[in-house]
Design a protein around this nucleic acid. Structure first.
Lengths: 258, 258
DNA sequence: CAGTGGTCTAGACCACTGG
DNA sequence: CAGTGGTCTAGACCACTGC
């Protein structure tokens, strides 16, 4: 039983002035569920209460809860499993793993062998102006900066620089990072309670500087994909800035438009 | 009144052997609507019959039709407009225009001035092996090959080579192409009844050959984005192969992950 | 077998559009 | 004002999972 079961606001209530600001019931339910997710009431991988339970808790019909969950499932925040229940999505599952990594092997064989990861660097430092802006911090705030190389079949392919806000990631060290198996985003979930939900990427073609070229084992004349990503948790709070350099000689960035 | 109103198949009917192959009613309705779209019963931009009409036609409830339309709308094949009706999606609308072009200006201002288009080449020729494979044709089949340059603010930015199957695009000429205003995909809809619905893109970083560099006004040492796209109509039939080279010095390819 | 999500229905009412 | 899509409900039944 929840403490003080929240009720959806009455829609006819005057909102003061201006636009009517009509919001359907199921949207309000969606926000309530979202709030519970943010508060960590249900953790990644766990079941949430059944539709009937939620309907009783929110005092609405099952159909209304269903529509709210439908939208959250479409956004990959929840995962429905018939006969079992509805679960909080996680980056730790086998077939949804590396969902944000779009660099796939050329050819038709999707034999996605796992990458060998090498952490080159992991420091606590002060945010520069552009890093601060990307992470919604102030210049000089504490951030973690790390650099790593991913190799496939022994071939270094991805060089990544990451910046993480110091607050939510307090206690991050190169050791803990190196010890982690599986996707980094799964590690963030279990170790820091930070779940990445959305991301925006800006992609350009660039040439590496000598240091970058050396880490990737290419000449400075090799064109590389520059992928700048800002990843967010629930409520679109930016939680990671990532600048990647991808070799695209035997792999490509895949995108589906629809 | 439709000729011989099709009825959804009875689900309990034995499917011979093997998997039960259960398919919900709304999925069958979805396929029937899809079929009407393919047949051109309703053209891009037109209204389709109201939910109540379709429900009567297919002998199901409004809710079932609604769910079918919901999915088609989520896939951008239909567009719902409250109070007006449900419309066949089109590339000719202002705010949905260039939905497949992901190259956006750097910075926060999305001042998307229209591009100046120059058709460099437009020929009818025989498909090479790789072009044929991409378009699901046979080597040697007739295809149209065209090349064009897009410039923004006078700066040549995109060089595109396109291959189109000769059959569906019979009668295509450089003149008709040059005369077209607005998006090329809208032109394809009105002139050839070909609506692009989905596309897959493979993105790499490359260096241009001398000819490409000249057309884009860059040196051959300038890294460029190589974007290979295969675009499909309804039922995933490939209808276009497009190889683009994008300058990314003042623009970037934007992608939203979720 | 009980419990979950998934489908389907029927009906009432609301919000929006256009004439 | 009539007609459209949008919301909400209640209830029946189906498909799937796990015990």
């Amino acid at each position: 039983m929840a403490t003080a079961p929240p009720s959806p606001t009455d829609n006819d209530a005057a909102t003061g002035a201006g636009t009517p600001a009509f919001s359907p019931l199921y949207q309000q339910i969606k926000q309530l569920i979202l709030h519970s997710l943010q508060q960590g009431e249900w953790k990644p991988g766990e079941v949430i209460p059944s539709e009937l339970e939620l309907a009783a808790r929110f005092r609405v019909s099952q159909g209304t809860v269903r529509k709210a969950i439908d939208e959250l499932a479409a956004e990959h925040l929840l995962v429905r499993r018939q006969g079992r229940g509805t679960f909080v999505a996680t980056h730790a599952e086998r077939h949804v793993q590396y969902r944000f990594l779009r660099l796939v092997p050329d050819g038709d064989s999707p034999t996605d062998q796992p990458a060998q990861r090498t952490v080159v660097e992991c420091r606590r430092q002060r945010a520069s102006a552009d890093v601060a802006r990307a992470l919604a911090l102030r210049t000089g705030d504490a951030v973690f900066q790390l650099r790593r190389v991913l190799a496939f079949g022994g071939v270094p392919t991805i060089l990544e620089d990451l910046w993480l806000p110091g607050g939510p990631f307090k206690g991050l060290t190169a050791e803990r990072l190196s010890a982690c198996q599986g996707p980094m985003y799964a590690f963030f979930e279990t170790e820091f309670g930070v779940r990445m939900v959305r991301a925006d990427e800006k992609i350009r073609a660039v040439l590496p500087d000598p240091g970058q070229a050396k880490l990737l084992g290419v000449t400075p004349a090799t064109p590389l994909l520059s992928v700048e990503r800002i990843a967010c948790t629930y409520n679109d709070l930016p939680m990671e800035l990532r600048r990647g350099l991808y070799r695209t000689d035997t792999r490509h960035y895949h995108n589906r438009l629809s």
